[in-house]
Design a protein around this nucleic acid. Structure first.
Length: 540
RNA sequence: GCGCCCGUAGCUCAGUGGAUAGAGCGCCCGCCUCCGGAGCGGGAGGCCGCAGGUUCGAAUCCUGCCGGGCGCGCCA
């Protein structure tokens, strides 16, 4: 699929190459959308980037470039002017804009998407909250982020596998079993157990929990918690391909963990000290070596994790992405070291860190103490502000920044939310298109030049493939939210300035097509965020 | 002390080398004979944390400070 912008870029590159005497030009040429309308439809810094290497004044090169572009583009180019230190500002003909809208509509659902060569098999592991309690707000941010990333990767042509790592082994699980058992007997959980209200409900849901062995109670409790997490996440429109249980890493003989340790051992990456087994992660830039097997004989979480990632590699994934909470950032170096120690390129594992969500209610920090059990859960958040607003609020900011989510604001002013603004634009387009089909316009042929709002909207739609590629490349789905909002704004400006239905047939046809293209791009943008794109919106 | 993230409008945040730094919310002033007013137009509000450096050009890249968050276990 070739986009009009690609073609324009190709013409620019050809012009620059021609002027450089046929030599390949290494500098990066950029076609930009100027902020100032008087700077044309598109601007390029090509002269600034290239002239110095050729020993020419930028403005002089820019002058030559305008002439060469005129030859390359013919009547498509209305004007090309040199400005400032050597920018070239381009204005393109209405016909080019018409062709651009056609290209968007022709590409249809695939506009903005790509076919990756080769497509990567990507395993994206996210949420992976411990099954000892409900998924809370931090996990919810992690969920919508991982899911949006998966949607992006898939749209640009990769094969994506969504995976949830169920940490169903270890001391915390034992604590869960003991806590549920205690509640079943009408007793208080131990000091270091789980105190939340949900433990009481859990105990009630497990017949005979008071009499069964703690390990068995724990196993049943984990099953219930995982099922609940799966239900909650599905409500959020997050569905996993696989729920990988840590216990499977310890099962069998030899177990996956044992096999991983054998690999490390045979390569001389481990040693014994103080009766514990250590991995020489310092050989790979870690701050200190790390324990794999404690002096008690138990494996560390780290050992399980190494075996888990070896398992992912064995399953044939080209790229592994783990989405972790901010408190795990100190774990990154040792994990990369482990991948290296296993004999793989550490670049095949990407560890993305989500910063925190601070819940604010009426301007005050909401309580999120997990121990007290009164933290806000995924389910509560959805009840409060709805799935679309929840996803939007958690996705509209970079995952690298802490965000504040004011519940009161999200509740009371939901009608003023950006997400509704974007959805509203989509619904309005659907309404226009429906009427456009049903009604016949007056039979007056017009040949009006395009309005500035029309041209701006078309340029906005043309940016979509670049935005998608950027968002995927930088693992930044929040860029799609920004794009969707500004596109909805561009559409609203067009809607304000340009009557669609009550104009001559030629203009009406073009504007309906522009509406269709806009609706298509907005729908796709919202879909990449997992937010619905309604055909109509009804006010309460 | 070390590591990661952050510091941009009153608030929440976009903007990883381009021209006069943006959006949402809040505030002020206007706009419903009009394809959906969940809307639109205008306005006030900025030493882009500080100081150097790199270059035609820096919010953006480099160095050093200052401030905030989160981590630094034979826990998970």
């Amino acid at each position: 699929m070739s986009s009009p912008l690609d073609d324009l870029n190709a013409s620019l590159a050809a012009a620059v190459t021609a002027l450089a005497g046929g030599q390949p030009v290494s500098a990066q040429l950029q076609l930009e959308r100027p902020k100032q309308p008087e700077h044309g439809d598109f601007a390029t810094n090509a002269a600034l980037a290239v002239a110095k290497g050729l020993g020419i004044q930028p403005r002089e090169f820019a002058e030559q470039l305008t002439e060469e572009l005129g030859r390359q583009l013919g009547p498509t180019l209305v004007s090309a002017e040199v400005a400032g230190p050597g920018f070239v500002n381009l204005v393109l003909a209405d016909e080019w804009y018409g062709g651009a809208v056609d290209a968007v509509i022709e590409a249809g659902d695939q506009w903005g998407g790509a076919v990756a060569y080769p497509p990567l098999q990507i395993n994206i592991e996210f949420v992976s909250a411990n099954p000892t309690g409900p998924v809370h707000v931090g996990g919810t941010r992690n969920a919508v982020y991982g899911d949006a990333l998966a949607r992006l990767f898939s749209f640009v042509g990769h094969k994506v596998h969504r995976e949830y790592y169920v940490n169903d082994a270890g001391s915390q699980i034992r604590a869960l079993g003991v806590s549920v058992q205690a509640r079943a007997r009408g007793e208080e959980p131990p000091e270091d157990g789980y105190q939340g209200e949900y433990i009481i409900a859990l105990a009630a849901d497990i017949p005979g929990a008071g009499d069964l062995p703690a390990d068995e109670v724990a196993r049943l409790a984990v099953e219930l918690m995982v099922a609940e997490a799966e239900r909650s996440l599905a409500r959020l429109r997050v569905v996993f391909d696989d729920w990988f249980h840590e216990t499977t890493l310890h099962a069998g003989s030899p177990s996956p963990v044992a096999k991983a340790l054998t690999i490390l051992d045979s390569d001389g990456r481990t040693y014994i000290s103080d009766e514990a087994l250590w991995l020489r992660t310092t050989e790979f830039d870690d701050d200190k070596d790390r324990v794999l097997e404690r002096s008690s004989g138990e494996h560390t979480y780290f050992a399980s994790d190494i075996a888990y990632h070896q398992d992912k590699l064995d399953r044939g994934f080209d790229l592994m992405i783990d989405v972790w909470g901010a408190d795990h950032h100190g774990y990154i170096k040792r994990m990369h070291a482990a991948i290296s120690a296993l004999g793989h390129d550490p670049a095949c594992l990407e560890l993305l860190i989500m910063q925190l969500v601070h819940l604010v209610d009426s301007g005050e920090r909401a309580q999120m103490s997990k121990r007290a059990g009164d933290f806000v859960t995924l389910d509560e958040l959805i009840e409060d502000i709805g799935v679309d607003a929840a996803r939007w609020f958690l996705l509209e900011r970079s995952h690298e920044t802490t965000i504040e989510l004011d519940l009161k604001l999200a509740r009371e002013e939901s009608a003023e939310n950006p997400v509704y603004y974007v959805q509203y634009a989509h619904a309005r387009i659907a309404s226009l298109l429906a009427r456009g089909v049903a009604e016949a316009g007056p039979d007056v042929s017009t040949d009006e030049p395009l309005h500035a709002s029309e041209r701006a909207l078309v340029r906005k739609l043309l940016e979509f493939p670049g935005e998608v590629a950027d968002a995927a490349e930088r693992r930044s789905p929040h860029r799609i939210a920004s794009y969707a909002l500004s596109t909805a704004q561009a559409f609203s400006a067009f809607y304000r300035d340009c009557p669609v239905l009550d104009v001559g047939p030629a203009q009406r046809d073009f504007r309906l097509r522009l509406c269709a293209a806009s609706g298509q791009v907005l729908a796709r943008s919202l879909d990449l965020l997992g937010v619905s794109a309604p055909q109509s919106m009804t006010r309460d």
